[in-house]
């Protein structure tokens, strides 16, 4: 009886209404998702590039508190055992490594 009624009552109009409601629902969902992304804080990885003063061998390791450019940390070169200095400090942003604010 009800299905018959729906069929007779402009089923095409109902379908359009349903489709519009669905579109709005998806727009709302995407918007909420985008808003959540906007609120995220990026947590970058901080790397340090060290160069051996003797052989010029380059090494990259994670940043340690107290590191600064040109600092000579108490670390020996893996290749020749020479003194090393911090050539550059930089960050790499990885989008997947994020935390929600």
């Amino acid at each position: 009886m009800i299905s018959n009624l729906i069929l007779q009552f402009n089923s095409f109009e109902l379908l359009i209404l349903f489709a519009i409601a669905l579109v709005f629902f998806f727009i709302l969902l995407t918007d909420i998702k985008k808003q959540g992304k906007r609120m995220m804080l990026i947590n970058p990885e901080i790397k340090v590039q060290l160069i051996c003063k003797e052989c010029g061998f380059k090494e990259i390791r994670d940043f340690r508190e107290g590191d600064y450019i040109s600092k000579e940390p108490d670390e020996k070169c893996e290749k020749c055992g020479g003194e090393k200095y911090i050539d550059i400090i930089y960050s790499i942003v990885k989008q997947e490594k994020t935390r929600q604010s």
């Binding site: 906007r38 609120m39 804080l41 990026i42 901080i46 940043f63 508190e65 107290g66 590191d67 600064y68 450019i69 400090i89 960050s91 604010s101």
Partner: peptide
């Protein structure tokens, strides 16, 4: 507000750099 919020987020992220003393 979306522009202001991005700026505010930058300041919070900056705190970490100042805390660690990274360039």
């Amino acid at each position: 507000v979306p522009l202001i919020f991005n700026e505010a987020k930058s300041y919070l992220q900056a705190l970490n750099a100042f805390k660690l003393g990274t360039p």
